[in-house]
Amino acid sequence: MASTTPTETPPAPPAASRRAASTGRVGDKVFLGLSRGSGILLLAIMASIAVFLGYRAALAISENEGDFLTTFDWNPAGDPPVFGIAVLLFGTVVSSIIAMAIAVPVAVGIALFISHYAPRRIAAPLAYVVDLLAAVPSIIYGIWGALFLVPYLGGLNLWLDEYLGWTYVFDKTEVGVARSLFTVGILLAIMILPIVTSVSREVFLQVPRMNEEAALALGATRWEVIRMSVLPFGRSGVISASMLGLGRALGETMAVATVLSPSFVISLHILDPGGGTFAQNIAAKFDEADQFGRDALIASGLVLFVLTLLVNGAARLIIARRKEYSGANA
């Protein structure tokens, strides 16, 4: 390191700088090799995972007597084996939609409060607490959901049933505890809140001062500044943040498995217990499944993977379409 050269010895700098230059070149080579090697390794690992999973999934699907996409059942051990992902797909998508519908507006609100409304004294601790929520392991959320959320959501469920029951969606047709997709959605919302909040907050804090002053100087109120400058600038960031959260919601396993009472039905009465998600189904069945059963679960896992890819692709499209108008080229 050139900086370790003592300041008292004037002739040292040339030697030091030559040394720095030569190690720099070797460093370049080492770094190039290292990064190229790990890149290739990563691709190889991913390809082998994909081949392995695809092969096992194909084995299972070729033996399946039911339609893999439309069957409302999961019985790979039966004779003949019948299993399908319809219920899992439905449950995964519905619980994630509920989670997003609750978490994104709340997260954006909290993020705006931290970045633009709260005095520093409050903003910093609040941001810290929200970040802390992200560190709670999901099994803890699951236990909390099962022991607290499920019993205490009973009242909310009854209220929703009574006043919004006419919407069909909130019509509760079965009595019993709230081990429903709705409860799962709320739990997932709480779990993804921190990540969506902290990413959104960072984006809102990066809005250039001059963008906000443009609005202020026109006589915009604080809320109007947020509407004219902050939200448009943060839009693509909020979408990315939501996708991160959605990715977590789609794949969440333990918390869902702990709260949901699974059943192979599709019902839009989201307050009724039952339903299932990809990850929850895999977690619940993997241990007791035989080889074939595990291959079937792998096939369902691949569908989840594709679903996640599609969601991410859609998000990228949304962001790219607005690129011309994004703050990036200001």
Partner: peptide, 13 residues
């Protein structure tokens, strides 16, 4: 009204 040193149109508008 005010005009700033660096042009600052609303980039998303």
């Amino acid at each position: 009204g005010m005009v700033f040193q660096r042009p600052n149109p609303f980039p998303t508008m």
